[in-house]
Design a protein around this nucleic acid. Sequence first.
RNA 1: GACCAGUUAGCUCAGUUGGCAGAGCAUCUCCCUUUUAAGGAGAGGGUCCUGGGUUCGAGCCCCAGACUGGUCACCA
Length: 562
Amino acid sequence: MQLSEQELVRRQKLDKLRALGINPYPADLFPVNHTSKQIKSDFEEGKQVIIAGRLMAINIQGKASFAQLQDSEGRIQVYFNRDEICEGEDKSLYNDVFKKLLDLGDFVGIEGTLFTTQVGEKTVMVKDFKLLSKALKPLPIPKQKDGVTYDAFTDPELRYRQRYADLVVNPHVKEVFVKRTKLFNAMRQFFNDAGYFEVETPVLQPIPGGAAARPFITHHNSLDIPLYMRIANELYLKRLIVGGFDGVYEFSKNFRNEGMDRTHNPEFTAMEIYVSYKDYNWMMDFCEQLLEHCALAVNGTSEATFGEHKINFKAPYKRITMRDSILEFTGFDIYNKSEDEIRAAAKAMHIEVDETMGKGKLIDEIFGEKCEGNYIQPSFITDYPKEMSPLCKEHRENPELTERFELMVCGKEIANAYSELNDPIDQRERFEHQLKLAQKGDDEATEFIDHDFLRALEYGMPPTSGMGIGMDRLIMFLTNNQSIQEVLFFPQMRPEKKKVDLSDNEKAILEVLKAEKRMDLVALKSQSGLSNKGWDKGIKGLGKHGLTKVEKTDDGLFVELV
RNA sequence: GACCAGUUAGCUCAGUUGGCAGAGCAUCUCCCUUUUAAGGAGAGGGUCCUGGGUUCGAGCCCCAGACUGGUCACCA
């Protein structure tokens, strides 16, 4: 491994610390009794405190120094005065250990008393300190003055690959994840207060159901069967409603083997909830109450900014049927129209359609193209075509529609809910229809029939309404992040290129040289068969690695293995 | 998958017609006992993403590739 100069220096410091009898990675508990935040909020001149954290700034001024200590809640200034730390004649703790052997990023524990400096900064006067853990790599620490950040650590690739470093140096990043957890807690609280029951269902499923998506596939060795990572947990939660729970919910890590972009990660988190004896109208009320509650818990206000938009999660939300929405934005009424009429209308709107698209798909295309993007404020779109919704109950007034709504915010779907289909015969027919669509080549159709789920429905499922919420999308809206990677601690990335020890050029030269140990340079160059540039890079690289040596004699230049 | 942009010191970034590789911060040495982007003096630090080509000479021009970001396509 190639170490930078700074990394080498820190490793040398490690050795010097050990030589002084200081363990750079001590095992024993450090009795922290304050955080940086507590010191500032309950400041009291002369109070004794014990704190710990990372050194994030060191400012040495001779016999006294200032430093910034960062803990989980922020930073506090600490003041190292030589004669406070070293009361006797031996000043080495200050002069050697503090000044020479500590670095930015090191964890230290500090015992001290509070005071205020001449410029008014609340500060800890260090009486004693202890190295708790040495940092061997320098952190990309930005500087700040007058609210302006300099040299900020901003490269998205480095930030995502090294989230640990991102979190240390970018406090606003940590804030996003604090809000993410607040959102989960708020939602959980809301459901629990309503009397619903949090459950866990299988991630490894023999049949990937509940959505149409390409699954990740794995294999169970003992059973010798394929298993799929779940793409949704819907069918399992409904089985629990069959089993007699009134309301069940689960925060579900789902896995979909599809493309990655600004709004898609191969694993993402959905929340699904099912409540018996309710319908989708009830669920709309419940949903808007829930989101208002969550927005308040996360941001302290129902208002949120997303890019150029100001959105407000305060209930109630606009409700409009898909038919009325299409009528509003295109002037075309899909009611009682044949598939051909709708296809012709879509073509007239310059929407790309083809003959394999059924009525439902065509309507969905029109809505997606002409309507969806117009809904900035939270809006419920209701009554979707039957073909698009194989798990949803037929509409009580129109057999071509389903009792389904989606909640749109800024033109994006964040919730999807049904009056759940509980007619086992209808459900079987819908599955079979999906199977036919899939065999026809519709890659959005589900190609598996879950017979065990149908068996469960045959025992009887009460009328039920269910809803799914994309948690990652929701937290993006609540924290004004345009990219899903900003709201996942560890977004999926391509593997880092592993650094090869020797380049191909260097290997080619070594291969030739190995037989001879020492060769004429010109002969070696021609035998290696490399281009001028390739030779040049290769031989320079080998020299740098200390593997070969070039020697000049009266007979010419010779290359030697070291 | 298509197109556009980027990749240079630990970090953020310059880099002229193609002619010795640069700055600030960080690091190292020295001075400095209430500073705060502390300050002052000095020094070191580079696989210019990888590979090939053009050229006397490439960070820069050409070709191929890698990774990242963005836009579009795809995605219940």
